[in-house]
Amino acid sequence: MNRHRVLFVALVLASVSVAPALRAQGTPVLGIADARAREAVEREIARAADRGLPTRSLIAKAQEGVTKRAAGERIRAAVASQARRLEQARDLLAPSPSEAELVAGADALAVGVPAPMLRQIRAAYPAGQSVAMPLDVLTELIARGVPATHALEQITDLMKRGASSAQIAGIGASVQSDIAAGLTPDAALEVRARGVMSLLPSPAAASALAPSGRRP
């Protein structure tokens, strides 16, 4: 292979390698027709990235606005709100929440879950064990009309007793169905939580397991 060919291959390789990286350094291409609005949204996302927040959720929020044909300014405001919620969730779920936990926390705040409840959920599982699913279920229960304090109490009890993520998620889905079938939200949660509790070890046994950080 002569030098020209080697050089050509090198240049092609370089351009193939660098182009996506450059595109990734800038904010992803958003389907917002208005150029000024798009730039404003991209600035919001870039600012969030500078603050160390995950950007996937913000990009999805912007794209949701595009799909729902929202005005550019409204999309920018929605992205800014989501960034604030992510940041708040990061503080509440400290010390090291995963991206899934941050998004679950931000969604909970968006639905109206009181902020201190995020801390209480975090405290109910050993450090390092994801609280994304319990947060999702708490969010769903409150969205369905279960009083927030009752929902938190039941979820944290289940977590402390060693209920798995799947068991907690099952409660969320069952309560949905029960409410659709006519039960009150409170009653639906009560009966479903009781059902799962009956499958779990006694509180004494659960507390003996807790220090080991048993994963669901």
């Binding site: 030098r3 080697v6 050089l7 291959v9 090198a10 240049l11 390789l13 370089a14 193939v16 390698s17 660098v18 996506p20 990286a21 595109r23 990734a24 350094q25």
Partner: peptide, 23 residues
């Protein structure tokens, strides 16, 4: 020169390797 060509090729590979995780 052969050395310069090799250097360009090596640089391209390095850039590709370093940026692969950023994409």
């Amino acid at each position: 020169s052969g050395l310069a060509t090799s250097a360009v090729a090596a640089a391209a590979l390095l850039v590709g390797f370093v940026t692969r995780g950023a994409v």
